[in-house]
């Protein structure tokens, strides 16, 4: 029997999404209205047309696509590395009370620390290139994922951990076969937070730090258009940054989380089969 979902929820979320596009269009219209009525300096608020032209130009002729790809590659790479690192830390933390309390101290010290605050130290340790920016990204993702994953591992069903003992699974095998998949919903929430943090950290790092590699990413695009006073390009890059952040968060990660939760039967477990 298939797990069916109430069509009501689907209809709501559809309408909800529909509304968003309307709002977005409304915001753009409002932008243009305010600009025209107030006669504000176009260097402050360029015409919508200029921004969109710049966006199209950037995509087809400029370096926007390559910079976007570079940004995504770095952030996703950092996200993957941070996830693996968080998993290793969780396994280490499961080895005993000492390790666990030490790591929890480190994570509560590091979690609230913005990566940019570490910038002078990062330059000392990693220089200024890709490794430094990767460090900033990994710092941004590691702690939220670690904290989430660990609370996931702590809240595993006792029957699962007991079963691991009965089957005499080793530490790694228990982690890979039970703890990790068993705390997957927590892991995904961690990755969602990590994504939001790393995307922001990357853009900010590039704006303070300079381009990554020769090309630079979207943060560099923002910085460059700012210092060169290319306001339409600045807004078009901002638009790309916002839309990418939103798309990744709402379209990819949220759907992934929903799919897992649905499989686990967590929200609307309506598909109970009869004996």
């Amino acid at each position: 029997m298939k797990n069916s979902f109430s069509p009501d929820t689907e209809g709501n979320s559809y309408r909800h999404r529909h509304h968003r596009w309307l709002w977005l269009a409304g915001l753009l219209v409002l932008w243009e209205l305010i600009r025209r009525i107030s006669g504000v300096n176009p260097l402050l608020m360029p015409p919508l047309g200029d921004i969109l032209m710049e966006l199209v130009h950037g995509i087809f002729k400029g370096m926007l696509v390559r910079r976007w790809l570079l940004s995504m590659a770095l952030v996703c790479g950092g996200l993957a590395a941070g996830t693996v690192l968080a998993m290793i830390l969780v396994v280490i933390s499961s080895t005993g009370r000492g390790a666990s309390s030490f790591l929890s101290l480190i994570s509560s010290l590091m979690h609230p620390l913005p990566g940019l605050a570490l910038l002078p130290l990062v330059i000392l340790w990693f220089g200024t290139g890709t490794p430094a920016v990767l460090f900033i990204i990994i710092h941004a993702v590691l702690w939220p994922i670690f904290v989430n994953l660990e609370s996931g591992v702590r809240s595993l069903a006792p029957a699962w951990t007991g079963y691991a003992r009965i089957l005499k699974l080793g530490r790694w095998e228990t982690f890979i076969r039970i703890s990790l998949p068993g705390s997957f919903p927590h892991l995904i929430s961690g990755i969602r937070t990590g994504w939001a943090r790393s995307w922001r950290a990357f853009i900010a790092a590039e704006m303070v730090f300079g381009a990554v590699g020769i090309l630079g990413g979207l943060g560099w695009q923002l910085f460059e258009s700012r210092v060169m006073m290319d306001t339409p390009a600045l807004y078009s890059a901002l638009l790309v940054v916002m839309l990418t952040g939103m798309a990744m968060e709402e379209i990819i990660l949220a759907r992934w989380e929903n799919r897992v939760r649905r499989k686990w039967g967590e929200p609307g477990d309506t598909g109970m089969a009869a004996e």
């Binding site: 990693f126 220089g127 300079g210």
Partner: peptide, 22 residues
């Protein structure tokens, strides 16, 4: 132009002293 890196003056000093690729 392809070998430039944007750093504030103090960060540039640090980078130079730290023996990075700068």
């Amino acid at each position: 132009d392809n070998r430039l890196i944007t750093l504030s003056h103090p960060d540039g000093l640090t980078a130079l002293m730290a023996g990075t690729e700068v």
